[in-house]
Design a binder for these strands. Structure first.
Lengths: 113, 113
DNA sequence: CGCATATTCAACCGAATGGTTGACCATTTC
DNA sequence: GAAATGGTCAACCATTCGGTTGAATATGCG
């Protein structure tokens, strides 16, 4: 479990990867489509997706020559459970969250690191 | 905000730092006392605490020659809010969490990295 | 004052991270 | 079958990370 949290939090620590997760919240996507809004190479995105998959944050399924990426909430839930132990947080204001998402998606492709 | 999530998740990605946070859940502690259960050097722990403080996960206050470390739930809440946007997770079973904590604290000092 | 205690600083080290490029493999399409 | 498309692999590079050690800086105590 400790091992798992390591990889989950490490995966979440990168803004590109978080942006990818928020994109996948909209819909499942092929690797190439995930890469489209970013300025970095396809190989780099492919690596990021690999890290997300290792952490269990997404699953990848190959159908034909395209590999579909899909959000998998289990890992995030595990981390969330851990964090919530540190205090009972207020229920999330989903409007706030949507606004935040819109902003983060918008900024997704702009910078490398 | 994105910047902040970077440092928060990066801080949480290290098992030593998570163990420190769980220790601080019990009570505020001086740096030396935080270091006591670990096998690594005091300087290393001091660095870890600096990273936790930078991320806003703890605050440090110097009183006399001892620096007290105190959990600060705000940063964790910010990250938790972000994560909860990915799915409405079940309310946490606090008994489960306590059991998990006991286990993690126990194992805290055993390994370097 | 002089010594012990609490903590950080600085330099260093090996390993991991995030990115690049170019070659490669697999699948679909003409 | 040849060419285009989707994706990964491998080697490389600069930077960051997690740790070490030894010296330095406060602060408290007899």
């Amino acid at each position: 479990m400790t091992q798992r949290l390591d990889t989950i939090f490490a995966a979440l620590a990168d803004p590109t990867r978080r942006a990818i997760l928020t994109m996948l919240l909209e819909d499942d996507m092929a690797v190439t489509d995930v890469a489209e809004p970013f300025t970095m190479s396809l190989a780099a995105i492919s690596k990021h997706l690999g890290i997300l998959a290792d952490a269990g944050l997404i699953t990848q399924e190959k159908r034909g020559r395209v590999k579909w990426c899909k959000l998998d909430p289990d890992a995030m839930r595990a981390a969330s459970v851990w964090m919530q132990g540190f205090g009972q947080f207020d229920p999330v204001d989903l409007d706030d969250f949507e606004r935040f998402l819109a902003q983060e998606i918008e900024g997704a492709g702009e910078q490398g690191r």
